[in-house]
Design a protein around this nucleic acid. Structure first.
Lengths: 120, 120
DNA sequence: TCTATCGTTGACATCGATGTCAAGGTCCAG
DNA sequence: CTGGACCTTGACATCGATGTCAACGATAGA
């Protein structure tokens, strides 16, 4: 599919799809006329990228994470340098801390909301 | 305490403590000489702010969230306008989506790491 | 008192994600 | 063949969080 369709399917501006490509997150093929040609699986890919971005991860890290999440699961040994494994390990720790912080605060807000509603 | 000590305790540059103040997240008193004077409880406050920022929330939202999380719990009815309750509700939904996305991807990375380690 | 260290404000720079616009090529429907 | 919709690249702008620097005042220890 072309960039416009992917943009509609993922609610992502074409500008950003090109940006994600420049950051090395997606690699569309090209039609003979130069137009980008996106495979269907890139819909999920882009949604995942948006989710991770929204969750606070920078494209630099997402780029390292994505190859590990490909389905069907292919273990990319070539990519699995010790430094990258370290990066991934410390990144999962950061993600866990984020999850805890988000959960704690979300629960506190929800409790606040429920108290306010009860008193209404 | 003064800004330098708070900076050490929270590992946050003084520049940012002033920035958070300008964004309306903290309100230190002033000494007679103009120096900012931070209460002890602001250590936790700043750590919470950093956690929320790191979790992807903008200061604009954090500013609305913080008053709901004060301990001892004081329900600020004056602040609890319907619009703000709406904001908080939709923000908790966003936080839940973030948590799910982070959890899903973290688990996938951890599984990848465990597989790679097993094969090592 | 001198000096190092810390504090103040304000301006300007940077960085990543995103918006916007210009100039031009492609494609298709009328 | 023409007009509108879509694509290309590239430049420049914006926005929030953060870094850095300048010019200056306050503090504290030798």
């Amino acid at each position: 599919m072309r960039i416009g369709e992917l943009a509609r399917l993922t609610e992502t501006a074409p500008r950003l799809l090109r940006y994600y490509e420049k950051q090395g997150l997606i690699f569309p093929r090209r039609e003979a006329n130069g137009y980008r040609d996106y495979d269907d699986y890139l819909v999920d890919r882009v949604l995942q990228i948006r989710g991770l971005l929204d969750a606070g991860l920078p494209t630099r890290i997402i780029k390292q994470i994505l190859p590990c999440l490909d389905a069907p699961r292919t273990i990319h040994f070539a990519d699995a340098t010790p430094e990258m494994l370290d990066t991934l390990e410390s990144e999962t720790e950061r993600m866990t801390r984020r999850i805890e912080c988000l959960t704690r605060n979300r629960d506190a807000i929800q409790e606040y909301l429920s108290v306010v509603k009860e008193l209404a």
